[in-house]
Simulated scan of single mutants.
Amino acid sequence: MQKIIVLDRDGVINYDADEFIKSADEWRPLPGSLEAIARLKSHGWWVAVATNQSGIKRGYYSRHTLSAMHQKMQAGLVSLGVKGGQGVDWVSYSPYLTHDHSPSRKPGLGMLQAIEQRFGLSLAGAPMVGDTLADVQAALGKAMQPVLVKTGKGQRTLQTQHPLLQQVTVFDDLYTAVEDILK
C-alpha cells in the first residue's frame, strides 16, 4: 500500500505571516521543512499539500504568483537532491474566504477529496500535518491522523485548548513530526 502524507503549507513548510505571504521572494522555508519532505520522498512517500490561499481572492497575489511560490518550494527540494519532478507530488489550494463557505476551504474536505481522486486512494489513516484547528478538523473529517506543529499558528492553536486537540499528536516542527512518522 502506498504511503501518503498531507501537509498544510504556511506555518508548516514555510514561514507564515498574518499579512500573508504575497510573493515568491517572501516565501521562505522553515528550518528543516524541506529536509523533512526530502526524507519522506527518500522513504517512498507521496507528499500532498492542502493549503487555504484566500490571499488570491483578497487580491494580494495571483494564481501565477502562487505557482511561483510552489516552484520555489520544488526548486528547494531539488537543491537537496530530490530528483526533479519527485518533490511534492500534488498541491491542492483553496482561494476562497471563510464567509464563502466553500467546501474546498479547510476545515471543509474538498481539497482532501481532490487528493484522494488524484491518487485513487482513501486518506483514512494517513497523517495530516498542520498548524491550525481547521487543519485538525479537516484531518478528523477524513479519518486521518491529525498532527499539529508548534510553528506558524501552532502555538496559538494549542493555547485555545480546544477539545479536539486532545486527539492530536504535537511536535515542535515538521522535521520532528516526520522523524516520528518514519519510525
Rank of each mutant, 00 (worst) to 15 (best):
E35N: 03
A38N: 02
E26P: 04
N52A: 05
A38C: 07
W45K: 03
I56G: 01
P31I: 13
K41W: 10
G32Y: 03
I37W: 14
R39N: 10
T51K: 05
T51V: 13
P29T: 11
N52K: 02
W45E: 05
G44H: 00
R28E: 14
W45N: 07
S42M: 14
E26Y: 05
W27F: 15
S54M: 12
E35I: 11
T51M: 04
S42P: 07
V49L: 03
E35F: 04
A50R: 02
T51S: 15
S33L: 00
K57N: 14
V47T: 14
E35L: 11
P29W: 01
L40C: 06
H43I: 04
A36N: 06
G55T: 11
K57V: 11
W45Y: 13
E35Q: 15
L30A: 10
P29G: 06
A48F: 00
H43M: 13
V49E: 01
I37M: 11
A50D: 10
E26M: 14
R39Q: 12
E26T: 08
A38V: 09
V47Y: 08
A50K: 01
G32D: 08
V49C: 10
W27V: 11
A36F: 00
V49Q: 02
R39F: 04
R58Q: 15
W46T: 14
E35K: 02
L40E: 12
I56Q: 02
A50V: 09
S42W: 02
A50P: 00
Q53F: 07
G32F: 07
T51H: 05
H43K: 15
Q53I: 12
I37C: 11
T51L: 10
L30T: 10
R58G: 02
S42Y: 00
W46G: 10
H43A: 15
S33Y: 02
E35S: 12
W46S: 12
S33C: 10
I56N: 01
S54Q: 14
A36G: 07
Q53N: 13
E35W: 03
N52W: 03
A38F: 05
K57D: 13
W27T: 13
R28G: 05
A48H: 04
W46H: 15
W46L: 15
N52Q: 06
I37G: 06
P31V: 06
K57L: 11
L34V: 00
W27N: 09
